[in-house]
């Protein structure tokens, strides 16, 4: 996880995104323990206080649970994870659509383009 950070976006949010992505990809499973604050800090070369804030943020949104004396664990509630997956999808679509619109593409062109892209990709595979 030694990728560098975008220096103009708060690091605690970027770390949040990275951990969420790992959970969605299944690299960290439901009910599994997250690395300790210190290990995450060392791993990504960031301030432990920042990691603490990331964990707090994830905890507040219910994605992880802190168990006293044991560490931080990914929730076992599938509804929360499903919701997180959905949110992530929407935010990526949002980004795509707003960037395409900025460049002047119509909704129709976007849809057609996306379909085309997926079909050709499927044929290649």
């Amino acid at each position: 996880m030694a990728q560098s950070f975008n220096t103009s976006v708060p690091i605690y949010l970027q770390l949040c995104e990275r951990i969420k992505n790992k959970i969605i990809r299944g690299e960290i499973g439901m009910g599994e323990r997250l690395p300790s604050v210190r290990d995450t800090a060392i791993d990504s070369s960031v301030n432990p206080n920042t990691v603490q804030r990331t964990y707090r943020e994830l905890e507040e949104s219910g994605i992880v649970e802190k168990k006293r004396g044991q560490g931080t664990f990914v929730t076992e509630d599938p509804a929360i994870l499903q919701k997180m997956r959905e949110e992530l999808k929407i935010s990526h679509i949002n980004l795509f659509v707003s960037e395409m619109r900025e460049m002047g593409y119509s909704d129709k062109e976007m849809l057609a383009g996306l379909k085309d892209y997926l079909v050709t990709k499927e044929e290649k595979e």
């Binding site: 950070f5 070369s45 960031v46 301030n47 206080n49 920042t50």
Partner: peptide
């Protein structure tokens, strides 16, 4: 650049 992720 290197130190900024480390600073509070």
């Amino acid at each position: 650049q290197e130190i900024e992720p480390l600073l509070d």
